[in-house]
Write a protein that binds this DNA or RNA. Structure first.
Length: 263
DNA sequence: ATGGCGTAACAATTACGA
């Protein structure tokens, strides 16, 4: 089983790039984020022509997540409200940041964690609240499913190896202790990072700013992750970042990350 | 301290990204 995650930064702009990648990299499931399109306008056809089943949850201009699967997914659910009561979810499902489905007995959750804006801003507090509700959502998910893979754009560098220049005294959103602890709270439910099963190296990234020649200089962040329950983690044979799409014309600022485990 | 670059909505400029 191969599952990829990729923040495409507009599925309409990146449609050919993503189709070409999917043809060359026939993963079982591709989870994308930042589709930036309402469901009625989602470009389903090019992906269906490649034999993919398309599931999407989008909104106008911002956010949006989608799944491209080789086999039909079971029990596709959108947002936290599918599992959590309204008094916990509040308005968090207004932004389309979570979609889940089951294939081959594995529950997969595709996430676009909020960016967080400036430190201590409303957006930063929204991110922390979202992560707190994510923990509850994953807790309930684990009650229902033994095998779980969550993946997506987490907008958090888990530790200082995962950012080109480690933060100094000034808080950098994506690296603050509160964000990292909130992520660890989710993972402490029983999830592990397969990327770190294969390398302890730093300086390996999945996102580079469009500005300032960041990609050329490898000034990036590793913010796109998979997290697996122990049995899947133990069966994992690789977790790789494919930098090639980032080199092509009109790229996304993120590049795909692929995990593979033995069936 | 600010902007760099790119996308969407909208029609020149603004919101957003991490």
């Amino acid at each position: 089983m191969k599952i990829a995650t990729w923040n495409v930064n507009s599925i309409r702009t990146r449609r050919s790039l993503v189709c070409d990648w999917l043809e060359a990299n026939p993963v079982d499931l591709l989870c994308v984020q930042e589709t930036k399109v309402v469901d009625e306008d989602f470009p389903r056809e090019p992906f269906e022509s490649l034999g993919r089943h398309v599931y999407c949850a989008g909104q106008k201009s911002y956010n949006g997540v989608a799944l491209f699967s080789r086999v039909p997914l079971e029990n596709v659910e959108i947002g936290f409200g599918a599992l959590l009561p309204e008094e916990i979810v509040g308005d968090l499902d207004d932004q389309k940041r979570a979609i889940a489905g089951t294939l081959n007995g594995v529950r997969v959750v595709d996430l676009y964690v909020p960016n967080g804006g400036e430190y201590d801003s409303d957006k930063y507090r929204y991110k922390l609240r979202w992560l707190e509700v994510l923990r509850k959502y994953i807790e309930v998910t684990l009650d229902k499913y033994d095998r779980l893979c969550i993946c997506g754009d987490f907008n958090i560098a888990p530790d200082d190896r995962d950012i080109h220049t480690p933060p100094g005294n000034k808080p950098i959103v994506g690296t603050t202790p509160a964000e990292r602890e909130a992520l660890q709270e989710v993972l402490s439910l029983g999830l592990r990072d397969p990327f770190r099963k294969f390398t302890e190296e730093g300086g390996i990234f999945s996102w580079w700013d469009y500005r300032g020649g960041s990609f050329r200089r490898n000034r990036g962040w590793r913010i796109d992750h998979h997290y697996l329950t122990p049995e899947l983690f133990d069966r994992t044979v690789s977790c790789t970042i494919d930098v090639e799409p980032r080199k092509l014309p009109k790229p996304s600022d993120h590049t795909p990350v692929i995990v593979e485990w033995k069936d």
